[in-house]
Design a protein around this nucleic acid. Structure first.
Lengths: 339, 339
DNA sequence: CTGAAAGCGCTTACAG
DNA sequence: CTGAAAGCGCTTACAG
C-alpha cells in the first residue's frame, strides 16, 4: 500500500541557505544562474542543493516573477477527433512542441471536448497557470480567445478566428489554396467541377469553399457543392450525393485528403476511373496522399510549419514584443496521379 | 499589430476588497464558497468580483494551499506514436479525462519524446505545477516514476513499471489475457501456435509473451516467436518471418490488434485462409477488430477503464488516502471469426 | 560579490 | 459573521 501523506521532505530555499551557510538571496542567485556569485560559494550552494534534493517551488517563484515558463495548446475537440487518423493535429502539436522545446518552455496540451472543460480551461489560463495560450481547431465563433486576450493573457490562434474578436492568428492561405486546386482542374480541361467542402463552422471549411466558388465564378462555371466534416466517411457520403446530383461531373475538389480518400473509394465502387472519368484534388498533403490509389494530387499546407509559427508568435507576444495581427502561410499545388 | 505589454489590468483580492468595502479575508471566503458569509455581504463581493473581472492568482493560492487542482498525464512518446491509428492512447486519455472532469480537476497532457523534454517534465512535476502525475506507456526501466514518487509527488503508473521502483500502478492482466488467447487456440484444435510479441522494452509486450509461453509450456507445445513493436507494419513483417520459420503453423496469437491486422494481410497475400488454414487471435479489442476481414477474435482489455482507474487511484493518493500497490483489471476473450 | 528586507497575492487560524 | 495579522517560498532592488 502506498500512502499519500509524504514525509514532508520538500526542502526550501531557506533550508538550502542554512545548509550551505549563505543567505537565501545567494541561493536564489545560484539557482537562477546569476554570474555574480563567487566560485567557491557557488560550489557550496550547488552541493547543498543536490544533497537536499532541492527543487524551487514554482508557485512561490511565479508569484514574484509573474512567469511560469509554460504554455498551453488548447484543442477544443474530443479525443476522438484529435486522435483520428487525420494527421493534422499531430503535425501542429509537433511543430509547437519543437519551438517550445527550443525556447526551454514546457508545453501542456489541453483537450476541451465538453462545455465544462472549456470553462475550466478558461479559468486555468486566467489564473495564470501558463504564460500564454495557443488555440487551434476552433469551431464557430468560440469566445475563448477573445476572453483570454481581453484579460491580458497572450493568445495566438491557429486559423483565423470567426466572430468579432481581434486576436492574432497564424493561418494557411485556404482561399488561395482552393483556387489553385480549381485552377489546376480547369487548366487540365475539366468543366464540371464539384467540391466536397469541409464543415462550415470551421474557418478551414469555410475558406476553402470560398476559394472554390471564387475561382469558378471567375471562369463562369457553376458550383456543385456537398459538405463533409473532414472525416473519411463523410467524404464518401458526400461523393455519393454529388454523383447523384450531377452524374456528369468530371472533377471534384475535396477540402481534405482524408475526405478525398473516402471519395475516391466511392468513385471506384461506382465504376468511375480516377482521373480518367473524374479528376480528384485534395487538400492538406498528409502522408496518406502519397499512398492512395491513385496517388492524390493535392494542395500542400505546411502543417508542422503552422505549429512552429504559432509558437514563435506566442513566445514573442508573451515576451512583450509586438506581433502582426495575422501571419498567412502559402500553400502549394502538388501534382500526382489523381488529377 | 498586437502588443504583449498589457494594461496591467489584473485586479487582486485587495482591490476587490476595497471595491466592496470589506476585508481581504471576506473576499477570500466568498471566492472559496465559505458558508459563513452574510448574504448581503456575499452579494456585494460578488458584484465587485464581476465588475472588476477578478480571477484568483493561482500561484499565490497554491503557495498557501499547496494545491494546484491540476494533474498531469505523461506519455513518454513522440507525437507520431501517440497519434497513430493505435486507438489505445485516446482511450486511456478519455478515461482519465472523464474522472478528472468529474472531480473538477484540470488535466494536462505532456508528451515526452526526447530526453530533454523528459527532463523538463520531471522539473515541472517536482516544482509542484501539478498535484500528481499519471505515467503511461513506459519504455524500459524509466526512472521518472521512481524519482517523482521519492520526492513526494503522488504518482500512479499505467502498466506495471519495470525496474525496482515501487510505484503504485494500474494494469491489465496481460499474462492471463495471453493465456486465454492460447487456450482458446488449443481448445479449438490448433497445434502449431506461433506468436507475434510486442516490444520487449514494454511491460505489455513482455507479459503477453510470458503468458503465451506459460500456456504452451503447460500443454507441452513449443513456442514460435517473432517480435513486433505494436504497429501494423511490424505485424506484417513478423508474420512473414513466422511463415518462413515454420510454414506448418496453424495459429498465431498476436499481441495487439493492429499487428494482427498487418499479419492477416500477409496471410491472405500468401494464400493462407483465416481461420481455416491459420487461426488468428489479437489483443486489445480496439474498434478495428470488428472491421477486419475476417472480424478478429481477440482479448478485450478495458482501455477507458484503465484510464479511469488510474485517475481514481491518483486522486485518492493525492487526497492523502492509502491506495493499493497495484490494481489489475481482468481481460476477456471475444470470439469472432478469425479463430 | 553578498545579505537584509520588502513584497508578490493569496488563505487561515485566531480574536472578537 | 468579520477583520487583523501571520505566513506560504520565492526574487530583487538596495546597501554595503
Amino acid at each position: 500500500m502506498t500512502n499519500g501523506t509524504v514525509a514532508m521532505g520538500r526542502p526550501t530555499l531557506e533550508q538550502v541557505a542554512q545548509h550551505a551557510g549563505v543567505s537565501r538571496a545567494t541561493v536564489s542567485r545560484v539557482v537562477n544562474g546569476s554570474p555574480t556569485v563567487a566560485e567557491p560559494i557557488r560550489a557550496a550552494v550547488e552541493r547543498a542543493i543536490s544533497e537536499l534534493g532541492y527543487v524551487p517551488n514554482q508557485a512561490a517563484r511565479s508569484l514574484v516573477t509573474q512567469r511560469t515558463d509554460s504554455f498551453a495548446l488548447i484543442l477544443p475537440e474530443w479525443t476522438t477527433r484529435v486522435f483520428s487518423d487525420d494527421q493534422l493535429f499531430p503535425g501542429v502539436i509537433r511543430g509547437v512542441g519543437q519551438e517550445m522545446e527550443a525556447a526551454d518552455k514546457q508545453l501542456v496540451l489541453m483537450l476541451a471536448g465538453s462545455a465544462a472543460s472549456h470553462d475550466r480551461i478558461e479559468r486555468y489560463a486566467l489564473a495564470r497557470h501558463v504564460d500564454g495560450v495557443l488555440i487551434a481547431s476552433m469551431h464557430g465563433a468560440d469566445p475563448l480567445p477573445g476572453t483570454l486576450a481581453r484579460m491580458g493573457v497572450p493568445v495566438v490562434c491557429g486559423g483565423r478566428p470567426l466572430g468579432r474578436a481581434r486576436v492574432p492568428y497564424v493561418d494557411v492561405d485556404n482561399v488561395n489554396g482552393a483556387r489553385q486546386a480549381v485552377r489546376h482542374l480547369l487548366d487540365t480541361g475539366r468543366s464540371r467541377i464539384a467540391t466536397i467542402a469541409g464543415p462550415q463552422d470551421m474557418v478551414a471549411g469555410i475558406d476553402r469553399l470560398t476559394g472554390y466558388r471564387e475561382e469558378l465564378r471567375d471562369s463562369d462555371r457553376r458550383s456543385i457543392v456537398a459538405v463533409g466534416d473532414f472525416t473519411r466517411d463523410s467524404g464518401a457520403v458526400a461523393m455519393k450525393q454529388l454523383l447523384q446530383d450531377d452524374p456528369q461531373l468530371d472533377a471534384v475538389f475535396v477540402a481534405s485528403d482524408l475526405m478525398a480518400n473516402g471519395a475516391i473509394r466511392v468513385l471506384r465502387e461506382q465504376g468511375r476511373r480516377v482521373p480518367d472519368d473524374v479528376a480528384v484534388v485534395g487538400f492538406d498533403d498528409i502522408e496518406l496522399a502519397r499512398y492512395t490509389e491513385p496517388a492524390l494530387t493535392t494542395i500542400r499546407q505546411p502543417i508542422d510549419g503552422l505549429g512552429r509559427e504559432m509558437a514563435r508568435q506566442l513566445l514573442r507576444l508573451a515576451g512583450g514584443e509586438t506581433i502582426p495581427d495575422q501571419v498567412v502561410l502559402p500553400t502549394e499545388l502538388v501534382v500526382r496521379a489523381s488529377a
